[in-house]
């Protein structure tokens, strides 16, 4: 029994079909845990129909809180704060929760110890049963930060569950962008699938994501979604992939079927032939890669 394999699906830009590919792959892999790490806007649960939901509150960073009865309004904290998080409202010094970064500088500096750090509840992570297996996802409270932290938490939980139940694959629907949540979703992963589309922005985002996976030295493959919308750009992506020694795993055509199926909350690869074939291709290529790795 080898180590549990972690596959992360990324896109750079949102809306390229990341969740569609993730859900379709999830349907193909038998022995797996599905993780929705797109904690800012988790969507996969809409297709998964989770049951037996167990929610756990998630505490994020601590932020400063000023006790106004002790505060002498000396203004030192406000002067020092680099995040402009301290405001004076009706003569009282208050911390603006959204801006506070939790650095504790104000707490250290306060001459009368009027500042304490208070842990924030920023969201919750959820473990549930689905007809596709264990499903772990998280929801961040709107406007809350620290999604990188929550991603790490969700990943840790999925690893624990995988070890406990001896599950071989963790499939992670990663966050969009290239920021902290994405970095958190990458750490410790074994394979990254980047879903892109043949638009200029798709290509420029793809390049940025590849820079990141290269930095972490994680094996990466590309999926071109809606490749037939701009064949010329698709060729550019293929050329770029070749130059950078990254494999194009599959190309998925534009399809109304996929949109219709998602609107019905179905996993689209079940009824859309044009999606099923490329998804099987992706699955086989990744399986081959892991088998070759094991043999080494």
């Amino acid at each position: 029994m080898g180590k549990t394999k972690e596959i992360v699906i990324l896109s750079g830009k949102g809306g390229t079909g990341k969740t569609t590919v993730a859900a379709s792959l999830a349907e193909l892999i038998h022995d797996k845990i599905i993780v929705d790490a797109d904690v800012d806007a988790a969507n996969m649960y809409l297709l998964m129909e989770p049951e037996n939901i167990m929610e756990t509150e998630f505490k994020g960073k601590s932020i400063a809180n000023i006790n106004t009865s002790i505060c002498t309004s000396c203004n030192l904290c406000k002067e020092l704060c680099r995040f402009n998080a301290i405001e004076v409202i009706n003569g009282d010094y208050v911390v603006e929760d959204i801006s506070c970064d939790g650095c504790r500088l104000c707490q250290t500096a306060c001459p009368v110890d009027a500042i304490e750090m208070v842990e924030q509840i920023v969201g919750k992570w959820i473990i549930a049963d689905t007809r596709f297996g264990d499903f772990i996802y998280a929801r961040l409270n709107p406007g809350a930060e620290n999604s990188g932290n929550l991603v790490a938490m969700v990943k840790r939980q999925s690893k624990l569950t995988a070890e406990e139940k001896n599950i071989s694959t963790i499939l992670i629907d990663g966050p969009p962008g290239i920021g902290c949540p994405v970095i958190a979703s990458l750490s410790g992963s074994d394979y990254v699938i980047v879903v892109t589309e043949p638009s200029f922005s798709g290509i420029s985002d793809l390049k940025r994501v590849l820079k990141l996976t290269e930095h972490f030295r994680i094996k990466t493959g590309i999926v071109v979604n809606k490749f037939d919308i701009n064949v010329e750009n698709t060729e550019k992506i293929e050329k770029f992939a070749q130059e950078n020694k990254v494999e194009v795993l599959a190309k998925i055509p534009h399809s109304f079927c996929i949109i219709e199926e998602i609107s019905k909350k179905n996993i689209p690869s079940i009824n859309c032939k044009e999606l099923k074939k490329p998804v099987i291709e992706i699955y086989n290529k990744i399986k081959d890669y892991f088998e070759a790795e094991m043999a080494n």
């Binding site: 800012d40 961040l140 406007g143 809350a144 930060e145 969009p176």
Partner: peptide, 8 residues
Amino acid sequence: PGTSCPVV
């Protein structure tokens, strides 16, 4: 995009 700090 999204609903976290940068948007706010």
